[in-house]
Amino acid sequence: MAVIPSIRAALSRARTAAWLGWQVEGNWADPVLFSIYILARPLATALILAIMYSTVRAHGADPTVFVGFYVANAFHSYVNTVLVGMGWVVFEEREEYETLKYVYASPVGMFTYLAGRSLVKFTLATVSVVVTLLVGWFLLGVRWDWATVQWLPLAASIAAGLASTLFLGFLLAGWSLVLTRSAMVVLEGVTLASYLLCGVIFPIDLLPRPLQAVALGLPFTWWYEALRRFLAGHGTHGVMQRLSDTQVLLALGGASVVFAVLARWGYFAFERRARALGRLDQTTLF
């Protein structure tokens, strides 16, 4: 009955949260500093990749492999900025601004709030993806054949990948509610682990067996494989090579759904735990 007005109210609140996000992360006085802030990480990684692969190529490796990893690394900005960023929002609101309890006890709702706050992060990540790809294309020779791009599967996999980014962001934000000072370690850890586990900069075949199993359970591993196949035109060798495009898409879809369900359940479980422990307003750092 009152669905439309309540959706409108939620949208208006999300817009306010997005506005706050822009003030906090985007609206800096100095555009040069700001560009460095959003581009430093992806470009630095891109450069490391370029150096790494030029060394490998000197030893006769397949040059198309580099293109695939370059693309995956560019898109990994979403995980770095949005997913992990949602955890950082909780951490900063509690420890630095000390506003988390006021936001939490207001009718805004953490879902709406976090969704709004992540909108700016999403925009920044998109800028970073585009710039990294442009730098790759024009400066590093990271090119693909536009004629072989498979647009529909590409769009589907990007949609699934972004949805997983958001859902896992909620899960990580929930976890951050429970953690105190250790949230910093966890968030940095997640950033690092995602690089290692998802086939961002090297194929998951190089991982030890148990970690490879973990990697195959994560939606991002499949997302990046899908990007390599449908955009760059070449998948990775090894484990992935045996799978058809359809199988990769199905695995990505399956992992995304599983994590969506897990995130929904997990976020609320974490929130209840945080409220039981009295963590919502517990500052430990400043």
Partner: peptide
């Protein structure tokens, strides 16, 4: 609504009016 005294809470980058306006929007 809640007010706790003796705290230094607030988003430093916002102006005073922006902060109050923002919370009014969170409350609809």
């Amino acid at each position: 609504a809640l007010v706790s005294g003796g705290e230094n809470s607030g988003y430093g980058i916002l102006t005073v009016r922006e902060c109050l306006w923002m919370f009014s929007q969170f409350y609809g």
